[in-house]
Design a protein around this nucleic acid. Structure first.
Lengths: 224, 224
DNA sequence: ACCTGAACACCGTTCAAGT
DNA sequence: ACCTGAACACCGTTCAAGT
């Protein structure tokens, strides 16, 4: 007799399980063995539906990206891009493992290309040249995915007690001043404001280039 | 008799070995066991000089960052920041594993804080407020380290033959146009130009905010 | 003091076998 | 067709032992 009443293993079910596990226990808890255990199945069973672990993580990203809201394709291009990115970010906050997952991968799946295409197309619709769209995508970087590309998020976290905090402050006064200011303004929602601020800064810089009839080949955004 | 003529194990020697191994075989080849073998030593011997693998990777990053050139502390702030970042980037190109290494870490070491401080201090010297310096650091993101925060670097790499390339082009025309344009302009050095372009775009946007007497609290860089 | 051997609790993945 | 068991070649890390 086959194992009682267990629904057949399908790729979709594997991905849902893996995403739920990552939400609960982090990306490093997602192993072939752990996902299999989650599904009441032996590790090898997964390999009928998933090529290898890379494919598993790619599928997890696809699952989340496929659920991004698709914003209204009207209005100015910058507003459309802003809505798409903030929509992605809202989804991302529920899946913190997406940042390391995306950053560890090097090839985009078709679903992931679809999200890039939607943002690029909004810019082209706004009249931006392919060239400028290209540069704009680079400027956005991983922010396109609703994730911040900030290395060492908790820069102030290196100072546990007051004595060493003072030592850090004297050696790294600028870094310490930034950390103190952030702590005073209330860290949690400050991160959201920061994300939106930088997004707008970039959209604004790009819009300005476009408005002033920027063309590639001058080598840089500005003579320096 | 102790093992013939082998110099005593020191942290510095371990880091040099690990960096050389990563340069040669990539970050994923750097295991405690592989580094130990490189040094002709049993894995456990490393633990006298290194707390754990995280400490090993942190030490590798420190080794490279400590060798960043320190640019002349004169001239306008944007030029100083530009020189520091491009100096970091030059070092980075010799150590491609630095991107995944930095992105996988969450706490900065003092040496790494020192590099952030140098860039932040250059901005403060230029008269930027702590607040604006903070936002500027976020805008730069990991570019501060001389690495580009580009997810899925080879976006066009998903199309091996011409038939599927055409399929990709029809589904993702904007992405395909960008890929085609990049290929035409010669990919390798284009990446360098791209890095400098975006860096200048960001420095320019920040300089503009500073020049127009920007103050925090308006919520965003621009009304939208 | 400095290094080692053996062991523990994990990985991803293969292959041939079960039902 | 779909799942399993046993095994292979790895990990990081611990602990008690050697010299």
């Amino acid at each position: 007799m086959t194992s009682t009443g267990r629904p057949p293993l399908r790729r979709e079910r594997i991905m849902e399980s893996a995403v739920a596990l990552a939400d609960r226990a982090g990306l490093e808890a997602v192993s072939m063995r752990a996902v299999a255990a989650e599904l009441g199945v032996v590790p090898m069973a997964l390999y009928k539906h998933v090529a290898d672990k890379d494919d598993l993580v790619g599928g997890m990203i696809d699952t989340v990206v496929a659920a991004y809201p698709t914003p209204n394709p009207s209005g100015p291009w910058a507003a459309r891009v802003r809505a798409a990115v903030l929509g992605a970010r809202a989804a991302m906050l529920r899946h913190p493992w997406m940042r390391p997952a995306i950053e560890s991968r090097h090839a985009p799946t078709p679903i992931v290309l679809g999200h890039m295409e939607a943002i690029g197309a909004a810019m082209r619709d706004g009249g931006l040249s392919t060239d400028l769209v290209h540069h704009a995508m680079h400027a956005m970087g991983s922010r396109i995915w609703g994730i911040s590309p900030e290395s060492f998020a908790g820069a102030g976290a290196a100072a546990p007690d007051e004595a060493t905090a003072a030592a850090v402050a004297s050696r790294f006064p600028t870094v310490a001043a930034i950390a103190a200011e952030t702590a005073a303004t209330g860290g949690e929602c400050a991160a959201e404001a920061e994300f939106a601020f930088v997004l707008d800064l970039l959209l604004d810089a790009i819009e300005r280039l476009h408005a002033t009839g920027w063309r590639s080949g001058r080598g840089a955004a500005t003579a320096r």
